[in-house]
Each structure stands twice: as structure tokens, then as C-alpha cells.
Design a binder for these strands. Structure first.
Lengths: 150, 150
DNA sequence: ACAAACCCTACTTTTTTTATAGGTTTTATA
DNA sequence: TATAAAACCTATAAAAAAAGTAGGGTTTGT
């Protein structure tokens, strides 16, 4: 498929940051008509620390998912269609580059320290398969799937 | 280069513990005929700390994947057929939950603090789908798939 | 007896995640 | 135009988890 398949192969549990991001996006999706929504409203609804959520929304804004309005009467709002926000994009943004397994990347390749010869590494080959299959799932589920089920 | 690097290093991957476990299992699978294998042999082969690997092998033994023999001439050996060791079992043992959220985990379930009503949570429902599809992949790939590719 | 090898528990260090703090800037409106 | 509300920004502290270390205990072949 494409280079973007490299993005995923196997993910552990989502961080709170990412989970909160999904909650916030869902909230914003549900309150689209209201124009903009306060950080505090989302924080209160889900019992999240205002300041923590603030950082998350800022990241989502910088990444182009949200717009905002400063000052009195301001707030955040979605600037993308929910169907154009795949789970993979959000997870990637918030969970960030952490534990690496560069040995499954074709585009940014780096050998594992413990592998003498990657070409002969069965783990590498199987994990590439898993990556391809998992990516297929997460690229195709979007915020709109979440909203449909609320 | 910044954005590029981030693209390919964004997701939580397998912990070293789990990765080493797979390497050890693969090594044991390849050296089945020899009866038993020393921790040190595996550690040396992959440049892993002996003591760290020792803990991992002990866990694998307690979980019923390996047998061992103490004393001179001892070592570890597989007591399950590679085809009966799915990736999911090893990942769960060493890394914990496969689900992306605690509220959709089969083996490590925990209610979300921030969810007033899980039954109405769209994120929960979508993540259950993701879990089922991901599990389907990880339960059907086994150690024998890795060995076949070595 | 002795050395080899696994067994067990606890601890330390390092890294990552989570959360907080303390301001600055922008904007509506009284 | 003063004020308060709200987003914006950066740094740092606290907590948790992962990675690695230490040191002895137990079993076993020779």
C-alpha cells in the first residue's frame, strides 16, 4: 500500500491524553451547533483537569483538527468533518514517538540492537504482517463512527 | 526531518520485555533438538542482559510455556508446540492488555473514571470493535509463524 | 564437595506519563 | 476604556511504569 502503512503496527493501551482527546472531539462533535465550546465544559463533563485538557486541545488545534476563538465568548470547535478524522491520526498525534521498533519501517529504517541479521528475523516479518492488518482497521474507523454510537 | 521522523516513530510498541520474550521463544524453538538451552546462550546471541532475561524466562515458565532443568547441564526448553503459542498470549503476559482502553479489555477490565455511563459511550463501542478485529489477528499468528520465517 | 545453573525477592535507575503552575495575549462588553 | 473571560504558551514537578541490577537460595551432575 503506501508509506503511511508504516504508521501503525501494534499499539498498547492508549494514554490518558489520547483518551481525553477522543472524549473532547466527541463532545465537540455533539455540540457542533453551539458554535464554540469552553474547555471547562468538556473538563467538567468528563471530570478531567482543566489545565491538562487545555494542553491537549492546543495540540489538536495545532494539528489542524480544531479551531478556536479567544476572549470572552470564545472556545473550541471542530474544523474537520468527523468522517475525516481517523482514529489513527489522533493516536499518532497524542501518543507521539515513543518506544521504537524501527526494524519494521521501510522508509525510516534502523536495525534493532539485538538483531544480528534482520533479513533472517522471523519476528520482524510477522510483525510487518500484523502492522499491515492492524493499520487497515484503524485507518478506517473515524470520529464519525464514535458519534454514530453515542 | 522532524515531521518525517515523527511519522514513523509515533506509536507505543512492544516493550523490551515482550520483544526479548519473542526472541527467546524463537531461539528455543530453533534449538529444540538440543534438549535444553542456557539463559546465557540466548542472552549472548541477542546481546541482552543475563539477569533481565532470567526474569522474563521465569515468567514464561510460570505461565506454562517453558520447562526448565536446574543444576549443571540444565536450561530451558519449550513445553508447548509453537503453533499453540499465539502472539496474543505472550503480549498479554509481558505487556498486559491488548485492548486500547481499560473499559474494553477482556482480561484487564476497568471502568473509565471519566465516563458517566459506559453504555452510552461511543468511544467504548468503537474500541470494542477495534479490539475484536485486532485480537483476531494476534490470536491467529503464533510462534510457529515466526519460526517458519527464520 | 563443588561448581553450574535455575529460582526468587527486592531494590535502584531511567524514562514516560500525568498534572500543575504561572503567567501572556486576545476579545466581548459594560 | 477598564474589566473579566477565555485561549495561548512554557517550564517544571510529581507519579507511575519500564528497564535493569544485586545478591543470595536451591537443585543437580560430576
Amino acid at each position: 500500500m503506501g508509506w503511511f502503512q508504516e504508521l501503525f503496527y501494534f499499539c498498547k493501551m492508549l494514554s490518558k491524553k489520547t483518551k481525553y482527546a477522543f472524549h473532547a472531539l466527541t463532545y465537540l462533535g455533539k455540540h457542533k451547533e453551539e458554535g464554540s465550546v469552553l474547555i471547562q465544559d468538556i473538563a467538567t463533563e468528563h471530570g478531567i483537569s482543566h489545565k491538562f485538557l487545555e494542553n491537549i486541545l492546543l495540540e489538536l488545534k495545532k494539528a489542524g483538527f480544531l479551531g478556536s476563538k479567544k476572549g470572552k465568548g470564545g472556545g473550541y470547535y471542530l474544523i474537520k468533518e468527523p468522517k475525516d478524522i481517523p482514529l489513527s491520526r489522533i493516536i499518532r498525534l497524542l501518543d507521539g514517538p515513543i518506544a521504537l521498533l524501527p526494524c519494521v519501517s521501510l522508509n525510516y529504517y534502523e536495525a534493532c540492537e539485538e538483531c544480528k541479521d534482520q533479513v533472517k528475523c522471523g519476528l520482524n516479518k510477522v510483525m510487518i504482517q500484523v502492522r499491515d492488518e492492524t493499520l487497515n482497521i484503524l485507518e478506517n474507523k473515524t470520529l464519525s463512527d464514535i458519534l454514530d454510537k453515542e
